[in-house]
């Protein structure tokens, strides 16, 4: 269960105080697939950063399994990211000089999985997202965008996180591939009972999620 209450994030800029998120509150059940839509600069990425403990809020709380992650120390935030959160980025953000397999194994290493178990688990995850055989040993540069995003999803799933935060997961893909990736995420939310929060511009995709929130000028509304 993810519960966000009165979440506010402001930044100081040359023009004065900038409010990126303004008193945002919502909750998401386990295994729910939620989408967040909004224009560029509406605060979508800021919200994902706060939910992923990459940033700390100016005020408010983010409760995950009865723990306020906004109040975690830096060390605990890192552990939280490693074990409870999976990130899927628009530009995949795979490590370019590691193979698909090594990219997934890297996440397993940070999640504390023993070295002897990592390879087997990574192969299993890659199989699950449809990256099989020789593709597993290819470096990201030798994979298509869709394949890279599949590897990215496998990496996000590596430590069986409670929540997957996906920032424009289909934004860099053609519509057919994008649909396949969305279907994969949707399937995972059902089979793995993983909460997925996806930021997207694609209203078609947003319409197929369990719930859709709309962010405008830092304020959240249910669409």
């Amino acid at each position: 269960m993810l519960s966000v209450k009165n979440l506010t994030r402001t930044y100081n800029s040359a023009e004065g105080e900038l409010v990126a998120l303004d008193n945002v509150s919502f909750s998401v059940k386990d295994g729910e697939f939620v989408s967040i839509i909004g224009k560029s600069g509406s605060g979508k990425s800021t919200l994902l950063s706060l939910l992923g403990a990459l940033d700390t809020p100016t005020s408010g709380s983010i409760m995950v399994d009865d723990e306020d992650i906004a109040k975690l120390s830096l060390v605990k935030q890192t552990a939280y990211r490693a074990r409870k959160i999976g990130f899927v980025f628009q530009h995949y953000n795979l490590i370019t000089n590691l193979s698909a397999l090594e990219n997934v194994m890297l996440a397993l290493e940070y999640g504390g999985v023993p070295a002897k178990d990592r390879k087997e688990r990574a192969i299993q995850l890659l199989d699950e997202v449809g990256v099989e055989g020789g593709m597993r040993l290819r470096k990201p540069g030798k994979l298509s965008g869709g394949q890279q995003q599949r590897v990215s999803i496998a990496r996000a799933l590596a430590n069986q996180p409670a929540i997957i935060l996906a920032d424009e997961p289909t934004g860099n893909l053609d519509s057919t591939t994008g649909k396949k990736i969305f279907d994969l995420l949707h399937k995972l939310s059902r089979t793995e009972n993983t909460t997925i929060i996806a930021v997207t511009h694609d209203l078609d995709i947003a319409g197929k999620t369990d719930r859709t929130f709309k962010l405008r000028d830092g304020k959240l509304q249910q669409a």
Partner: peptide, 16 residues
């Protein structure tokens, strides 16, 4: 920097 940011985002510690 991006690679370092990603590593930190997926749970890599400063020390590692």
């Amino acid at each position: 920097r991006r690679e370092i940011g990603v590593i930190k985002a997926i749970g890599g510690t400063n020390r590692s």
